[in-house]
Simulated scan of single mutants.
Amino acid sequence: MLAGGAAGRLGGADKPALSVGGRTLLDRVLGACADAGDTVVVGPRRPTARAVRWAREQPPGGGPLAALAAGLRHTAAATTLVLSADLPFLRAETVRSLLAEVVRGGSGVEGVLLADPGGRDQPLVAAYRTEPLRRELALLATEYGSLSGLPLRLLTAELSLGRLPHPDASFDCDTWEDVAAARARIRDDGRVLDEWITAAKAELGIDLDVDTTALLDLARDAAHGVARPAAPLTTFLVGYAAAQRGGGPEAVAELTRKAVGLARRWAEEAEGPGGTAPAGRSGAAPGEAAGGQGQQPGDKAEESE
């Protein structure tokens, strides 16, 4: 996963650390690829919800190809999932579909890219066979003397690639408007409860498939038909997590504080700093390439796995 870059259109903010739906963008992407045998994050070290291996391109800020090469040095897997760290709507099922398409394509397919609704390739939301990646990166390094600053299209143009269309998984947060749109979408399009439960489980350190319909029916019956969905479900998760730790008032108190902290962060997103685009940060700086780091339009040069 590539989690570096200057985030020029965000005024230099630490983009992977921005919160969407109570979780950082980086943690959201890490959650989508939790089944990976080994996870390498290329970029500055940051707190993460699960353990990862860190790597850094040299020099720092050398762009996506340099970052990708740095990450590949830490994996021996036959297939490499390459993801940017600013994908709020990426889901595990999409990741599994990318990997399955690589297998289905056989030896004639060296990778599968996600295609956005406009049909544009997303080379940093993709699964690649590792050896072709190593081969082409080595050839580019020899040809240009360095991978630093080179655009992703130089790599993808040399690979035999399949495409997997998806309506929203490639949505990325390059600007403050993108961040605000992602936060609003999570709250307003019917996914808010699922998003909250996922965030709460991650915060509490539990992995549990919650039958929300049954629990909400029970809550409505107990409350004589008055439903406050997030409250009973969150309380249930706190109790479950406390039981996993052996129970007791200390466990309940600690986990309740965590859930309260998550709820406060959730609420602050709509009102606190970064909730709307700060003045002067709504567009690209003069002369800045889209996404920074010298990539071409349609490329993403900041983040992958």
Rank of each mutant, 00 (worst) to 15 (best):
D217V: 15
P44W: 01
G280P: 02
M1L: 15
G106E: 04
R281C: 15
L83I: 00
A141S: 10
R187T: 07
L68E: 00
V192D: 15
M1A: 14
A127E: 04
V95W: 09
P59I: 05
G63H: 03
S97V: 04
G11D: 06
R191F: 00
L72C: 00
D207A: 15
D168A: 13
A17W: 04
R257C: 08
G298V: 03
S84D: 14
G275N: 03
V125D: 04
Y240L: 11
Q58M: 10
G190F: 02
G5T: 03
L154M: 09
A279T: 14
A76P: 05
L139A: 15
V260A: 07
R257K: 13
A184E: 11
S19E: 12
A66H: 04
C33M: 13
D168W: 12
S84W: 08
Q295R: 09
V103E: 14
L262T: 11
A242H: 03
L25I: 05
R135P: 02
S84F: 04
A199R: 09
Q295P: 12
A115P: 05
P117S: 00
S19G: 06
L87E: 02
L154V: 05
A78G: 12
A157I: 01
D194T: 13
G239V: 08
V109A: 00
D168G: 09
G71H: 00
R73K: 08
T213W: 13
L139Q: 14
L65R: 00
V238Q: 03
R163V: 08
R91K: 13
L30M: 06
G43K: 05
R96D: 09
L155K: 00
T234H: 07
R23V: 09
E158S: 14
G12N: 10
T39R: 08
A13S: 07
E250V: 14
G239C: 03
A36E: 11
P151L: 01
P286A: 11
D207L: 07
G248P: 07
R183A: 09
L216G: 03
A253K: 11
W196R: 11
E57C: 06
C33G: 10
A7Y: 10
G247A: 05
D209F: 14
G105I: 05
F89A: 01
S107A: 15
A222V: 11
E305W: 13
D174V: 11
E303G: 15
E143Q: 14
E158A: 15
T94Y: 05
A100Q: 08
T130Q: 00
E269V: 03
I186S: 07
G22F: 04
S282V: 10
G272Q: 09
R46G: 00
L98Y: 03
G11M: 06
P64L: 13
A141E: 15
E101T: 04
R183T: 08
